Amino acid sequence: MKYNKAVMTKLINQHRDLHDELKKIKVEMGLEKNLAIKALFHSAVADNGPYMKEYQDLERLQ
């Protein structure tokens, strides 16, 4: 599965907990938004993460 910023952004906008986690990553790690989104992808979606199925569903709609 490949990282797609547009799909990841949609997923974040649909889930408040992902949005909150994104903010937390930005502050704690001092990352800019794009890198924080990518980090969130690797922690919450990639490698059978809890949001992998929803991400794949959104990706199919693209």
Rank of each mutant, 00 (worst) to 15 (best):
Q62K: 14
A46W: 04
I25W: 08
L58Q: 05
K10Q: 08
Q14W: 12
L40T: 03
A6D: 06
K10M: 09
F41L: 04
A6N: 11
K24M: 08
V45F: 02
K26V: 06
N48V: 13
E32M: 06
E21I: 06
I37T: 10
K5H: 02
Y55R: 07
E21D: 14
I37D: 01
N48E: 06
Y3M: 01
L18N: 03
M29W: 13
N13R: 12
L40D: 08
D47C: 10
N4A: 06
G30Y: 03
K53V: 12
K24G: 12
T9V: 13
K23Y: 14
K10R: 07
R16M: 12
N13E: 10
I25A: 07
G49F: 01
K26D: 07
D20V: 15
L40G: 04
D17F: 07
R60W: 12
K5N: 06
T9N: 03
V7R: 02
L58R: 04
I25V: 11
V45D: 03
M8Y: 06
L61M: 15
K26R: 12
N48K: 12
S43K: 09
S43L: 10
E28F: 08
Q56P: 05
I25G: 01
N48P: 03
K2C: 02
K10L: 10
E54S: 05
M1K: 04
N13C: 09
A36M: 01
I12S: 03
K24T: 12
A44C: 10
H19Q: 15
M29L: 15
H15S: 01
T9D: 08
A39V: 11
S43V: 07
L58G: 02
V27Y: 07
H19F: 12
L18Q: 13
E54M: 03
F41K: 02
T9L: 11
V7I: 09
D47Y: 13
M29F: 07
P50E: 10
G30M: 10
M52S: 15
N34T: 06
N48Q: 05
K2T: 12
L18I: 05
N13L: 09
Q56I: 15
L58D: 01
K53Y: 15
H19S: 15
Y55A: 02
K5P: 07
A6L: 06
S43W: 05
M8S: 01
K2L: 04
R60K: 13
D57R: 13
Y55D: 02
R16Y: 13
L35H: 11
K5M: 09
V45K: 04
K10I: 00
D47S: 06
A44P: 02
L61W: 15
G30I: 00
H19I: 14
L11I: 01
K53R: 14
L61R: 15
E21M: 12
M8C: 00
Q14A: 14
F41G: 03
V7S: 00
M1L: 05
R16T: 14
N4V: 12
M29P: 03
K10A: 07
V27I: 15
V45H: 06
R16V: 13
K53P: 07
Q56S: 11
